[in-house]
Design a protein around this nucleic acid. Structure first.
Length: 486
RNA sequence: GGCGACGUAGCCAAGUGGCUAAGGCGGAGGACUGCAAAUCCUUUAUUCCCCGGUUCAAAUCCGGGCGUCGCCUCCA
């Protein structure tokens, strides 16, 4: 049974879908005016993992993630780059997918864009005006927060207390300073769409309401995003949606914590952000993803290169283990007697399977889940050790069990690239071309080194090994012969 | 000012009332190896920011203090 921390109720709740076996979830996607930074990547990876786990549990999942392609920041950036705003937005949507792919994030079932949902947005605003929750002033439409009784219920705020804070934009045409724009009148040269209130474009929040309601309907199961969206974005989404549908907009509200740099929030205004692709220049996507999942999603996560390096080394350990598993499959035996070692190993696998599920069931505790993954690697390594000590062959059945479990963990956490249909992890596929030649050359050099070793010419053997190491090729002498990896 | 989160080993990080305080990185020692690598074994927090309190029992609950951070304005 899954428990999810719900921002709305400020506690963990049992997860119950409105339709048995079916999960509808909506995650706020990026405003595409630039390449995404690490802070943007966190929710993308976190909710991709949530989705993967729900699928693993047997749910049907409909996953919607929008792109905000109509926005002030896009317009500003477009002017700077001498580009049409929508063209610019489209460009960064393409770039977004490159980063998302590198992080092994699956495509949403639908990636709706604001620019393609003007009729739905306008319809929703019309409805709000009709219900008396919104009002028009000089071509602008505002949501009347005082009319919506539950305003503040998500973020735990009180309208009057917020006024006291006084950090609210003064705008004489609004009835209340906290009223927010549903429709903005177009200024000269800005992209605009016709509406009953004249040429203009939607406010920031209404898009998500319109698209979520269109694709998922009211009362969908999970709405996710970064913690900084709680207020005002999600608060406003709730207000404007529920004012129309007159029922709960979404049931479980999930928010991920921030990425920090020296404990300070990574943000564009502070200028302390790192683009995902800058990081991908230095580290593989799998390392970045693994690092993002090494902490519980609601906790802050501090970023620096040393932490990624630590993640990389940890991941190396898992990788070595899987390689061992893959190699051993070839020399295993079908019918092996049920020795104590086999039995214990099998029991451990069952136990680890359960532990992993318990961890993920508990509000998607990926930090605990990865610990279970390391435990699995340890068990597998010990198993091989025991087998070697007994001079015995591994059991094909148990090896397969271990491999299946390893692949399952990976399917949920999505760290290593895997075969779409089998779920088998794909280790460094050699990408064609001259790699075959490289293979042969290494075989040749390694062969020469072996001859030197036979003659106990350690100097030659070691200098070959050291030389290859400098080229990024690691040689290992094992009882089964020489192994190498790049 | 309002609201909220956090403070666990050298670093990262689980655990939120009761077995020996997970796991990873790093360090130390050992096994294996010609030497390595990989792997395994042992070790690295008598204690969870501090002070009180509740309890048979607290890292975990309560009160106070100190410190760090976030939201309240565009932000994932």
């Amino acid at each position: 049974m899954i428990e999810i921390y719900n921002t709305l109720t400020r506690q963990k709740e049992k997860f119950e879908t409105s339709t048995p076996g079916q999960v509808n979830m909506y995650v706020c996607g990026p405003t595409t005016y630039n390449y995404i930074h690490l802070g943007n990547a966190r929710p993308i990876v976190v909710f991709d993992t949530v989705r993967r786990y729900l699928l693993n549990k047997g749910y049907q999942v409909t996953y919607i993630q929008n792109f905000t392609d109509v926005d002030d920041k896009i317009i500003k950036r477009a002017i700077e780059e001498g580009e049409q705003p929508l063209v610019l937005a489209e460009k960064y949507i393409k770039e977004y997918f490159k980063d998302a792919d590198a992080l092994n994030v699956k495509r949403a079932d639908k990636h709706p864009k604001v620019s393609e949902h003007m009729p739905e947005i306008i319809e929703l605003i019309k409805e709000l005006i009709k219900n008396g929750y919104a009002y028009e002033v000089e071509g602008n439409v505002f949501f009347d927060v005082r009319k919506f009784e539950g305003y503040g219920k998500l973020s735990g705020r009180d309208l009057d207390e917020m006024q006291a804070g006084a950090r609210v934009e003064v705008n004489e045409i609004k009835k209340d300073p906290m009223d927010f724009a549903l429709w903005k009148k177009a200024k000269h040269g800005e992209p605009s769409w016709p509406s009953p209130w004249g040429e203009g474009r939607p406010g920031w929040h209404i898009e998500c309401s319109a698209m979520a309601l269109k694709y998922l309907g009211a009362g969908f199961d999970i709405h996710g995003g970064g913690y900084d969206l709680v207020f005002p974005h999600h608060e406003n989404e709730i207000a404007q949606s529920e004012a129309v549908v007159q029922e709960d907009f979404a049931k479980y509200w999930m928010h991920n914590g921030f990425i920090t740099i020296n404990k300070e929030k990574m943000s564009k205004s502070l200028g302390n952000f790192f683009l995902v692709r800058e990081i991908l220049d230095k580290f593989p996507g799998e390392v970045v993803r693994f690092y993002l999942l090494s902490t519980h999603y609601r906790s802050p996560l501090d970023f620096d290169n040393e932490k990624l390096e630590a993640s990389q080394r940890g991941l190396e350990r898992l990788k070595n283990c899987y390689n061992l598993l893959a190699e051993a499959s070839g020399s295993s035996e079908e019918s092996i007697e049920a020795s104590e070692v086999e039995k214990q190993f099998e029991d451990q696998l069952v136990h680890l399977d359960k532990s992993f599920e318990e961890a993920m069931d508990d509000d998607f505790n990926t930090a605990l889940a990865t610990a279970v993954w390391f435990d699995l690697a340890k068990e597998i390594n010990v198993y091989f050790k025991d087998k070697q000590n007994d001079n015995a062959t591994a059991s094909a059945a148990n090896l397969q069990r271990a491999k299946d479990l390893f692949n399952t963990f990976n399917q949920v956490l999505g760290v290593f690239k895997a075969d779409q249909t089998t779920g088998n992890i794909l280790m460094e596929e050699k990408d064609s071309g001259d790699d075959e030649l490289v293979d042969q050359l290494i075989q040749l050099v390694a062969g020469i080194r072996q001859q030197a070793r036979k003659k106990k010419d350690w100097d030659t053997a070691d200098s070959i090994r050291d030389g290859l190491k400098e080229l990024g090729i690691t040689l290992q002498d094992t009882p089964q012969g020489v192994k190498w990896k790049r």
